[in-house]
Amino acid sequence: MLEKLNNLDSRWMYLALVIVLVIPIIKPIGMSISVNKDLTQRMYDFIDSLPPGSLIMFDLASNSSSDTEITPMIYAVMEHMYQKGHKLLVAGQWSSGLAFWSPKIDERAREYGWVYGVDYVNIGYKAGGTSTWRAMGQDFWKGAMEVDINGTPFSELPIMQNIRKLDDKTIDCIVIFESGSPGMETWITYFPTIPLCKGSVAAEISSSVRYIPTGQLKGLIPGMRGAAEYEKLVNRPGIATQLMDAQSMSHLLVVALIALGNIAYFGTKRKMARGR
């Protein structure tokens, strides 16, 4: 039995994983979600503390492969901004991220009745990396080549009239949705005075939390779990909340498999030692 378990074909585990994920999607259990006070709650509190009408900049530093984790975060933060009456500036260090999420942001903005160019704007991808961002720090219009994602001149967009520099006097908070590099290092290195929050894919959480105690990060949404927590805080359950049951069940399966694997390994070892 133990040997059988030790040599179990990994395809059975994949099958078990799919079953464990599919059942709670079709028939949710409704497990409760607690909010992480040190990460998600901090970010919520920070954005909540900004006066209505504050300008928040989204940096989409990710791509479509992180859709399931990042999209619910973007929606939850947008919901919070809508509730608080904040304004949105969309930018991105990854061109693929902007291409993927811009239509989704537009769709959600239409739902909120936001007027493009007044309540929110999307400046599109600006090539050149950190030197371009630094140029925007001196003169936003010039650094961003004076046009938005659609090629509309900044001069025709009312919201852009007040955005002349990328600094803490203009931008009240940057929220970066990140799954790799270039990412938040751009902001903590070159723009340390602008408050920074982060929506992070799960793989990046452990390398990001150390920036919380030093204040380099004001808050963090950790993976899809964090997105579900933020959805709870803004009182608008979305796709992350609905998928948390499946996520939790998959974790239970992994814990069970780790336990079984160890039992099989040590059991077999003991048996072999006895045999000798």
């Binding site: 994920l21 999607i25 992180s66 996520q247």
Partner: peptide
């Protein structure tokens, strides 16, 4: 552990695509 959690999220996204967009068995979001 966090990376594994992230990978499960990606898998969930694909499964949701199959169950929702293709088969129409669930309606989330």
């Amino acid at each position: 552990g966090n990376t594994v959690q992230g990978r499960f999220s990606l898998l969930l996204g694909r499964l949701l695509f199959l169950l929702q967009d293709w088969l129409g068995l669930v309606k989330l979001g």
